[in-house]
Amino acid sequence: MDWTNLFTIALGAVLINNFIVSQFLGICPFMGVSKKIETASGMGLAVIFVMGLASAICWPINALILVPLKLTFMQTVTYILVIASLVQFIEMFLKKAMPALYEALGVYLPLITTNCAVLGVVLQNTQNSYSFIESVVYGVTGGVGFLLVIVIFASIRERMEFSECPKAFEGFPIALMSAGLVALAFMGFSGLKVFG
């Protein structure tokens, strides 16, 4: 196993090619549930969970079913099917097995079904022809990147509540502008390289 390779993938997913601020995936939950740090971190944790599991399940389906049957053009629709039922399954499982976690994730768990970052991560796994381990690492660390950015952004928005801004920019406009600034800041990581 090549640890350097895995580290590169992880670093790329968290900082350099962050799902939100450089690939612009998963913007809807990013704007929607970033009003409070508490809810933002709940959403982030749920995303880590689902992204990791989705990567782990979609990889064998692609490698064992779609590729041998030359059905790779069906990836998107198959992955959507997998993600939707996976989220449903996880919800039921958590409700029974870990009620505390279920309560903590709350409404964000079903919301993830419509999170394009999850579909993005499984599609990219295939496009980059990652191995199984690499896929899972990419999925989990992509979720970590999501958590990082959404928590940073939520803390910015919490502070913004108390700052005065021009009337025309109140609410979503100023939030979008700050999101752009966060994205600009993350552009600073784009030169980062891992030498192995």
């Binding site: 059905l71 629709v77 198959t78």
Partner: peptide, 14 residues
């Protein structure tokens, strides 16, 4: 067939 079978499996699991 693949999509139908996958859908059926997931449905059954759920």
């Amino acid at each position: 067939v693949v999509l139908a079978v996958l859908g059926a499996i997931f449905g059954l699991v759920l």
